[in-house]
Design a binder for these strands. Structure first.
Lengths: 290, 290
DNA sequence: TCGGCCATGAAACATTTGTTGCACGGTTAT
DNA sequence: ATAACCGTGCAACAAATGTTTCATGGCCGA
């Protein structure tokens, strides 16, 4: 009578399904097919949509070993919890310390990062780029490892908008810049968990000044994303290893710069050519020769 | 009440958050951080876990334009529905040329970069990491956009080897450092076409001094790769757009740091913990709670 | 054919849900 | 100083929830 807990609530259901009364099978199939609605909507709602009696859901739950529909629903909810989606943890566990452990670590890391890139929202980046295009001035912020991403963004944007782009705190303490934010300007803050106080301060200052705030972060719940007009998400913890991954953040930064440049049209192109000409004139580059 | 119907319930929440009362901000942050529980568990449950009043949830929902908590939760539930995953719709819409040409540019860029990552040689990185592990001192070089990658590498390596890692030219003109290279030390040079004279000078100096030279470049024919003991290749021009892609270089740098750390064993781990403890002690991070 | 069994739907049940009215404490404006 | 206001917690409210009970109808075995 009391069956031991199987691997997943849905598999328990599927296994017990054939030995159930007709009506309960019907309801069981409905639950299996709409398990997301099963966890969110109410029993009566589901009954109405399935064309069945509300009591049937309670009976179904009891028939497969749960104390009631509440219990079954709780199990389904836990099974669906997003944090459990860790396709790499299994691989990480399977990886043993051996002669090729380092190589395995690297390939896993690269695969994970490659998988994370397409999950970035292109629409959000395009919208943010339009904001940058309209901004009179652009401030960029990033601390600790994120500083590298901030500096890349700063470099690329300055190639075609030299006078209007600046890293926060580049010419002195950050605090001096915080008071310089104005409406009509854009402030970009890059960060991930654990978040630095400094980056949060910058974001708050931008918000208070009425400047457009663009956050590049690993979560919508990030402190610097509060009040942000645009939030661009990347996965920092997706890859194995001890350090969080910045590949996603960098990809976002590059796309942002590319689209902003594209929006700039011929004017931006002209500016870029001027800059490149100047760099070439000071013999920065090694001459290309066949 | 007329609802502006923004993009996502979480976005609305995030935007309105700073202008909300103190306790409502608290509750709002909790919802943003635990949006899955928000859709499944009950209001009173959430209130108990958040340490807040149940009524606060209703008030929060009304404050951001919903008729009540039920309404907000329904919106969150719909936003989380697994069937309507955005990547496909975004890609489908973006394929056309026109107003969404920017989106097409971004998705193409991301796809190309994701495809380029697995082509990186894990073996070469592992070998280079072993060299770094044995090096008495590590110098890092990168100019123009590559400076950002150089600085990330510098940052991560210094987390567990503070005294032995340094960016070339960080404390004055590069020329001073060039004379400081010694045998038994490692010099990392990052660059892609067009190559800067400065990076080539560093590479040549490293070679003459008998230091181990590691080149991270887009081609084996790169000037700074001449005489290098290790050459780590990435694809800079693989992605569409005007600027070359640094995603591959960054992925290499991160893998390099991760493996070098892994080789460091318990000593490196101890060093990293010390560094993190020091950062936490100076209250660099926002305290995590919830 | 009869009698017991079980599946099934409708209605009544106790709980829990989301909501709202009210009083208290703090701040701001007059 | 006083009044008005707002944010907040508490408690009571009506509605909705999951559960149970009961009556009905069909099925199979005797």
């Amino acid at each position: 009578m009391a069956e031991p807990a199987k691997s997943s609530p849905l598999s328990e259901l599927r296994i017990a399904l054939p030995s159930l009364p007709l009506r309960l099978q019907e309801v069981g199939r409905f639950v299996a097919a709409n398990d997301y609605d099963a966890t969110t909507r109410s029993m009566r709602d589901l009954a109405a949509e399935a064309g069945a009696d509300p009591a049937a859901f309670t009976r179904l739950a009891k028939a497969i070993g749960y104390s009631g529909w509440d219990d079954l629903r709780a199990a389904l909810t836990e099974a669906r919890r997003p944090s459990q989606t860790s396709p790499f943890s299994a691989r990480a566990k399977g990886r043993r310390h051996g002669p090729n452990a380092d190589v395995t670590l690297i390939t896993d890391k690269l695969e994970a990062e490659a998988a994370g890139l397409p999950r970035i929202s292109a629409h959000a980046i395009a919208d943010a780029a339009r904001t940058l295009h309209d901004a009179r001035r652009i401030w960029i912020t990033g601390y600790r490892s994120c500083r590298s991403v901030a500096e890349l963004l700063n470099y690329e944007l300055r190639l075609f908008r030299p006078e209007q782009v600046q890293i926060v705190g580049a010419s002195g303490p950050d605090d001096l810049d915080l008071g310089a934010f104005r409406a009509g300007e854009a402030v970009i803050v890059i960060g991930f968990m654990p978040y630095t106080h400094a980056s949060v301060r910058v974001a708050q200052a931008a918000y208070r000044a009425g400047a457009t705030l663009i956050a590049i972060a690993d979560s919508v719940a990030a402190p610097m994303a509060e009040g942000a007009d645009h939030v661009l998400l990347f996965e920092a913890a997706s890859s194995p290893g001890f350090f969080p991954s910045l590949t996603g953040a960098l990809a976002i930064a590059q796309s942002l710069a590319a689209v902003t440049f594209s929006l700039g049209g011929s004017a931006a192109k002209k500016r870029l050519e001027d800059t490149e000409a100047r760099l070439a004139a000071t013999s920065t580059y090694v001459s290309e020769k066949g």
